[in-house]
Write a protein that binds this DNA or RNA. Structure first.
Length: 442
DNA sequence: TTTTGAGTTGTTCGA
DNA sequence: GTCGAACAACTCAAA
């Protein structure tokens, strides 16, 4: 009889899971294993632990219905995987790869001790499978996306009929209430409810609930990106616009896979010469949503309040840290990585570098978001700001976009006296940043 | 090899 | 208020 371990990481599903399919077809028995890695577990918020624990319980329930259990252990991954292999008689491990340098090191440590077979289940197309005619990786998104759309998707066969091992009880840690309904089935329902036509029209509006929020399911793998692609399709403009975001997702992952240094170095090296300000107070004000710019503060408080932020607001808040406060993008990237439920290193790094101007983007560095015009344009009624900045809930009309323009007596009468004034003047900050960039890039 | 067209998400200023 | 230009130059991808 042959036994193999299926090592789940960020692919907490059975549908369209290449590692699960391969192992259940190859073996008579599979041991489903999840390792809680203290290196990752200790760095994330309670909310994220609760969601992960919820997903693990759900996966365990599914496996129980099949007569097995999910085995969950906490500790050094290589030691645990090899230990479980020894105690169960498994002679290989099957898993889905991730593109981060950390996961590469982790997997190399296991591969040094036993057979590790890696598949790709978290991207539509595996890194290295979308190439220019010269056989090189793309550095520009638009030609990448053309090639990406033209690349056929490999369809998986169904899973095999291996028995699911049940010999060990589950060690899922107790954690709080998950912030969204956990599990593969709930993720499928979220996909069913998503309306790409609405996304195409209102997707830029943080005050409306018009985006999919599927980034969270894609991060934990409760949804396969291939399933999302197949379900949404490309037949309408809205569907195509949404699926294009999956192409961006693959693009950023492929870039990091090719160049692991991107996690802490500018893709364009000259940008590492920028003289960033070491502004502890400014950084703290940004983190806590106390910059005095309502749209920025609403976004940063939403991040703390629910572990998620609308994409448009990620751009505005990131631009504010880098271009208004002139603070190193890596500090902001770490803060997002810690607090976002959908935190994905390749996406986070790719998008922060894009905002900084140091990444895969030809746009000039003088593209600096104006937090007030963005607020007027994308939160026209100010409802998003009022929802997340309670001090401003009583400020009427468009005054909510720039409260410093109202007098102190008015502000007090609206209950907004406690809201801070702007920590920088945008126009002056913009000039400061243009100067600093010019010096570094000259 | 050389040439050519093009590049997610913006802002400001002056006519 | 609306519109076009300027904000710079560079690198990528394909012909």
């Amino acid at each position: 009889m042959s036994t193999g371990i299926v090592w789940f990481r960020r692919d907490l599903r059975l549908a369209d899971n290449p590692a699960w399919t391969a192992a259940t077809r190859r073996h008579d028995e599979v041991v489903p294993l999840f390792v809680i890695d203290p290196h990752l577990w200790d760095r994330v918020t309670e909310r994220r632990r609760a969601l992960l624990a919820g997903h693990l319980r759900s996966l365990d329930d599914t496996l129980r219905a099949m007569g097995g259990r999910l085995r969950v252990e906490c500790g050094d991954p290589a030691a645990i995987v090899t230990g479980v292999a020894a105690s169960t008689g498994a002679h290989d491990v099957t898993a889905n790869a991730d593109v981060t340098p950390y996961s590469a090191r982790r997997d190399a440590a296991v591969a040094a001790a036993m057979d590790l077979e890696l598949h790709h289940g978290s991207l539509v197309h595996r890194p290295g499978s979308v190439l220019t005619r010269d056989g090189r990786r793309y550095r520009v998104f638009t030609p990448f996306s053309r090639a990406w759309f033209n690349t056929p998707i490999a369809q998986l066969p169904g899973p095999g009929d291996a028995r699911v091992a049940a010999d060990e009880g589950s060690g899922i840690p107790a954690a709080g209430r998950p912030p969204v309904e956990p599990g593969e089935a709930a993720a499928g329902r979220r996909l069913d409810e998503f309306d790409p036509a609405r996304y195409a029209v209102e997707g830029n509006r943080p005050d409306l609930d018009s985006t999919s929020r599927l980034s969270i399911d894609l991060k934990y793998g409760t949804l396969s990106p291939v399933t999302v692609y197949d379900r949404i399709g490309t037949s309408s403009n809205g569907a195509r616009a949404f699926v294009r975001q999956l192409a961006w997702r693959d693009f950023h992952a492929h870039l990091l896979d090719e160049n692991p240094r991107l996690v802490d170095s500018a893709m364009k090296p000259a940008y590492d010469e920028i003289d960033w300000r070491n502004d502890t107070q400014g950084f703290e004000a940004w983190c806590q949503g106390m910059t005095g710019y309502p749209l920025v503060d609403a976004g940063m408080r939403q991040l703390l309040g629910e572990g998620w932020m609308h994409n448009r607001i990620r751009l505005v808040t990131a631009s504010f840290l880098v271009k208004d406060l002139l603070i190193d993008w890596r500090r902001g990237e770490r803060w997002f990585r810690r607090h976002l439920l959908d935190a994905d290193v390749s996406q986070n790094v790719g998008n922060w570098q894009w905002v900084t101007g140091s990444g895969a983007d030809a746009a000039p560095y003088f593209r600096i978001f104006n937090p007030v015009s963005q607020s007027k344009r994308f939160d026209p009624d100010g409802e998003y700001v009022r929802r997340w900045v309670p001090e401003l809930a009583g400020v009427p009309g468009t005054a909510v976009h720039e409260p410093w323009k109202s007098g102190p007596i008015e502000l007090a009468s609206w209950g907004a006296a406690a809201y801070p004034g702007p920590i920088v003047d945008h126009a002056a900050a913009r000039e400061r940043t243009l100067d600093a960039y010019r010096v570094a890039l000259d």
